[in-house]
Design a protein around this nucleic acid. Sequence first.
DNA 1: TTATTTTATTAACGCTGTTTATTTACTAAT
DNA 2: ATTAGTAAATAAACAGCGTTAATAAAATAA
Lengths: 205, 205
Amino acid sequence: MGISERKVREREEMRERILKVAADLFIREGYERTTIRALADRIEYSPATIYIYFKDKDEIFQSLFEEGFTRLTEVILEAGQIADPLDSLKEMVRAHVKFAKTYPEFYDLMFIMRISTPIFNTDLDPDSFSGKCIGHFIGKIKECSAAGLLRIQDPTIAAIEIWSFFHGLCALHIRGRLGVLHQSETVLEGLMNEGLESYLLTIGT
Amino acid sequence: MGISERKVREREEMRERILKVAADLFIREGYERTTIRALADRIEYSPATIYIYFKDKDEIFQSLFEEGFTRLTEVILEAGQIADPLDSLKEMVRAHVKFAKTYPEFYDLMFIMRISTPIFNTDLDPDSFSGKCIGHFIGKIKECSAAGLLRIQDPTIAAIEIWSFFHGLCALHIRGRLGVLHQSETVLEGLMNEGLESYLLTIGT
DNA sequence: TTATTTTATTAACGCTGTTTATTTACTAAT
DNA sequence: ATTAGTAAATAAACAGCGTTAATAAAATAA
């Protein structure tokens, strides 16, 4: 009897339909401005139906949070395949910044918005979506560190510092605190490359 | 006839009474969780009274935004009095990070929350609260640059990069994305000093 | 065909920021 | 001193929000 299988499938399809519209709304309008009523309107169901598939608005957010890290992990992994560790690390950073520029609202909910659980946790759960993603980054740092390419001893410290620098760039950009950038499209890339050379490289021996 | 003077004074006092409570609520509860009704309760007036003194919730936010920059400007100016340009610049950064740690919600609304007008604008209004503050910072960068202490030619680029790095650190910290930091109180300072030496110093020739 | 479970909806609750109409308190002029 | 005019404070409401309880409809199982 494949009925229950179909039911599970249908339920999953509904969840994904909600998530797809939610992603569109969150990314276009932001978290606060996205309303359950508008979301329900778009999938042509009543607002209450949403709550059959998701506990609350936050659970939808959480799912998108995970999807964001799944996407970021893809490009990070791709960058991780480059043989030279330092080149690979640089490409990871480029992928990170590009991701922030391409999906600013995803980046927002992944790194800027208020949430409960910290990402750079001491016991980073390697199975969580964020944990996996950051794990690859820290792994590459360790690789560079082991190869004697970094000056800072502790790879975690190095990871935080590098991440901080590029997150700062992305965050200020996304929040419009870098008005100068909005003139030219390529300035962010320029700053990034400048940063990669002047910061990352000078860490190297 | 000092009546109209008293009226103006009373109006200003009321505004400040509202702002004082608003600051306390915003800083303790955050922007979204702070309600006009709670604010009105605390000053023992009705919610509608708030709207006699402020156009809307956003205008209260704006006022606090300015107050935050007034406070930050104070400590930045103090750091600016140090004779040696590089030491002075370092102290400015320390003051900035310390400010973020001491008044996380002020820092939040100054640098993280969504607002309309960008800070690092091309035509930075030198009379605005944020403009003055950042002006001092960029001024010091220019001083360092003129003294040949910085490698990056464009002082604005240098300012953005340095600001990005330390903002990234502060922002990740405030948003709880640096779980590892919450163990020890001094780790943020450690990372900051590490950053000052490994980043700021390596920019110098 | 009947009983049971799942799904969707309607209507409401308690909350939000904000506005309108009204009352209260104060100042100015007769 | 009384009246007219102005500013300040309020109660009540509006439209919106996330969320939930009760109810109706549909699909499945017996």
